[in-house]
Design a protein around this nucleic acid. Sequence first.
DNA 1: GCTATTTACTCAGCATACTGATTGTCAGTA
DNA 2: TACTGACAATCAGTATGCTGAGTAAATAGC
Lengths: 156, 156
Amino acid sequence: MQETNDMPGHLIRRLQQAAVAIFYREVAETDVDVSPVQFAALDAVSKAPGIDQATLAGLIAYDRTTITGVVDRLVAKGYLQRTQSEKDRRAKVLKVTEKGQAALLQVRPAVMAAQTVMLRGLDEAEAEAFMTLLRKALGAVNELSRAPMVARENAG
Amino acid sequence: MQETNDMPGHLIRRLQQAAVAIFYREVAETDVDVSPVQFAALDAVSKAPGIDQATLAGLIAYDRTTITGVVDRLVAKGYLQRTQSEKDRRAKVLKVTEKGQAALLQVRPAVMAAQTVMLRGLDEAEAEAFMTLLRKALGAVNELSRAPMVARENAG
DNA sequence: GCTATTTACTCAGCATACTGATTGTCAGTA
DNA sequence: TACTGACAATCAGTATGCTGAGTAAATAGC
């Protein structure tokens, strides 16, 4: 019987928890207040201005229900602008505000630093091997998640 | 500039989400209703009867605040028994009930199956390499989490 | 034995994640 | 045009995870 503590799922959960803690640690040294999830969303919108929420969810593999609250908070912070789409009145169109752009610029180095800290136990070759295996494992289970990553089709 | 979608933190988050979905999928085929977190807690208590909540939290690397709710739900389901410790009146002592034991027995194979599915994109050698790197990476960042794993010292 | 500190647990509050339901809109078709 | 099915967003409800605060009990230092 495999030990619970050494099961893939358990180790993945723990690494994810550590990764989140590391993210907050690094980002806390900037003036910007964003969560890992909020950063990913903000960054994605900055690279696809005018994107709608559903497409955004697909891009960064979020649940569509979750994205509502995440965008809510980014709008409340003044980082995102959410307006009704003219082409499709069901959809909301997202854009990064100037304040959001400034925040992104400031926070990106901290996020990059966090990525390094997360893998600080691995040397360069190991880190690369880990990332390769991570991508491969993920590719095979992506569809099993309710929030699979969906390749981008349009920018709205 | 590294793509957000290919950052370690992002990939780890996505794999964790898939892992949770896979867990629920496999466990749904049994009569038992437990979450990944609840399973880990139940399993840990079954291996250390009489453990207190703080020690349990350390064993499976949970936040101590979170454990309260997890145990609440396991008690509500009739899987765990929570009683005041006689040695330390601050502490609550945990034991798996007979119903909990039966649930564990039934659900363990499903949990094992889920572990296999999680890594189905990797062949045996790759899976082993992945696990080795995962353990190594985790060892180096464990202390950065608010809920690091703590080696067991006593069974209460 | 008394006091200061630490510890175990709980609670309030916030931010993910998910299931399932609802509302409004779009698109295809009879 | 009316109907049907699909889709975008939101909401209600539940379960993690975390920060910070509070209560009660144990322990260390004197």
